[in-house]
């Protein structure tokens, strides 16, 4: 099924999508998307949505299955609080990609804005995965509590791979960067670790479908230094607080 949506409000686009999924349709294509928000929000089944144009904010928010493929760029909030499913963006994505994402996969071919993967979590056997082909700005993986973020910087070798405050308040999950990161760029709750053979095996396995999707050469992608950021503690703020009543801890 196809829909020419350039003149439609997001409510109409989503109503149409809901009808399609109720009718048991598996593939739909939206043409002429011009920043309509919330496309595929709460998508809950096996629907596969192809989007031509620029997807608006909160693409696939609360998404719980299915697949969204954007041929173009996406704006802010891609995969906000996403639970399952897959979002693939043949282009750039804006700020707050994968905010509080708990499961599923997001591929962005090019760059993302600020706060990508912020407060990502992990739950059950479907931990979230976000792969960014280009670069990411500040606050990448801030408050990260689970899942995997990978930033590859494949396009412009002179562009900074990530900004500052990477992994600030991180208390779970892992960030892989294709390249290096200076200590001032990441938060004190995160720490660098050398990659183990398991990491390389994981990267190979995980990046293969990504490279295939966008036509990158997997070997060339892997033939590079990578670094790995992990949380130093699952309880970064354990010593911040103390009770005000009762002798709860015994300091004598």
């Amino acid at each position: 099924m196809e829909l020419h949506a350039h003149h439609l409000h997001y409510r109409e686009v989503n109503q149409w999508l809901r009808r399609c999924s109720q009718d048991g349709i598996h593939h739909v294509t939206l043409h002429g998307i011009r920043g309509q928000r919330y496309i595929g929000t709460g998508l809950n089944n096996s629907l596969r949505i192809h989007i031509h144009g620029t997807a608006g904010n909160d693409l696939g928010a609360f998404m719980n299955g299915g697949e969204i493929i954007v041929y173009g760029n996406a704006q802010d909030g891609v995969g906000n609080t996403m639970n399952a499913g897959r979002i693939i963006i043949h282009g750039h994505a804006g700020d707050v990609v994968a905010h509080s994402m708990r499961g599923g996969t997001i591929y962005v071919r090019d760059d993302v804005g600020y706060r990508a993967g912020i407060h990502m979590k992990a739950w059950g056997d479907n931990p979230p995965l976000v792969i960014i082909g280009g670069t990411a700005r500040d606050f990448l993986g801030e408050y990260m509590a689970g899942g995997t973020l990978i930033v590859l910087g494949l396009h412009d070798p002179s562009a900074p791979l990530v900004g500052s405050y990477v992994g600030t308040g991180m208390h779970g999950g892992v960030i892989y960067l294709r390249g290096t990161i200076a200590p001032y760029q990441y938060g004190k709750e995160a720490g660098l670790q050398p990659l183990t053979p398991d990491d390389w095996e994981y990267l190979q396995r995980t990046l293969a479908p990504f490279c295939e999707e966008f036509g990158f050469d997997l070997e060339a992608v892997l033939d590079h230094t990578f670094c790995k950021l992990v949380p130093l503690s699952r309880r970064p703020y354990g010593r911040l607080y103390e009770g005000a009543v009762g002798a709860v801890s015994n300091h004598s």
Binding site: H119, A122, G146, H171, G172, P236
Partner: peptide, 14 residues
């Protein structure tokens, strides 16, 4: 979330 981790609600919504 995994058991035993701090459940942090940040001050603002991101």
């Amino acid at each position: 979330i995994p058991p035993g981790t701090d459940a942090i609600s940040p001050a603002p919504h991101h």
